[in-house]
Design a protein around this nucleic acid. Structure first.
Length: 203
DNA sequence: AACTTGGGCAACCGCGTTCAC
DNA sequence: GGTGAACGCGGTTGCCCAAGT
């Protein structure tokens, strides 16, 4: 990226921001790799996308996280693990990068989470590839020894995790009984119970 | 005042997935 | 179906700056 050995982390300046914003105004988001060609901006597509998504987009909320956001992120992290984009998708105005940074710098410390002991166990896995299904380490969904704990329950988890605009109805009333806005119904331990022998193809 | 340390966060990297041809 | 480009994600790095010595 950007000239190999000449690479050095470089902050965006206001002129670059303006070029990028003008481009997006004119062409919309996407086609990030064309920006350098069309505008002469010396940034790769990935860098442009990141800058837009994390900073320039009007949807991005700046400033401190509120108590409610704190609380929501903690709950979502407990539910989803380090799935930052999914978590950010449920925290209006916040990006995955913001959420991730905020977790690593504020919340993990606040909660006394050991960064080394990553909360991998509660990360729902992507649909397993055909050859790696029985590796518990690489596929936490297979973690439960007896396998098939509660497919219906996990199906609801998957529905929650999948992008779905109807946030209120799906998230607030997860059928494992957890209301993310109700502290009394929240479990503090990771959802390891939910690792089931899940058949993605059947969904 | 000069230097060191550590926190906060923007930005990059590597890799997996999706899309277009 | 194969291949390359584009995109998206999570992890990591490194810059900036305030606080401490």
């Amino acid at each position: 990226m950007e000239g190999g050995h000449e690479y050095k982390k470089r902050l965006w300046n206001s002129q670059e921001d303006k070029i990028l914003m003008d481009y997006v105004k004119q062409h919309g988001v996407g086609k990030w790799n064309r920006i350098a060609k069309l505008t002469g901006l010396k940034r790769c597509g990935k860098s442009c996308r990141l800058r837009w998504m994390n900073y320039l987009s009007p949807n991005v909320k700046r400033g401190d996280f509120s108590e409610e956001e704190d609380d929501l992120i903690i709950r979502l992290h407990n539910l989803l693990g380090n799935r930052w984009s999914l978590i950010a998708g449920r925290v209006p105005g916040r990006t995955d990068n913001q959420v991730k940074n905020y977790w690593n710098t504020h919340l993990s410390r606040k909660l006394g989470v050991n960064k080394k002991g990553k909360n991998k166990a509660c990360q729902p896995s992507k649909p397993p590839s055909s050859e790696s299904n029985d590796n518990i380490e690489s596929n936490p969904l297979k973690g439960a020894s007896d396998g098939r704990q509660d497919k219906e329950e996990f199906r609801s988890m998957k529905e929650i995790i999948m992008i779905d605009d109807d946030f209120e109805s799906n998230f607030l009333f997860a059928n494992n009984g957890v209301d993310l806005f109700d502290p009394s119904s929240f479990r503090s331990e990771p959802f390891q119970d939910y690792f089931v022998d899940f058949d993605w193809a059947a969904v």
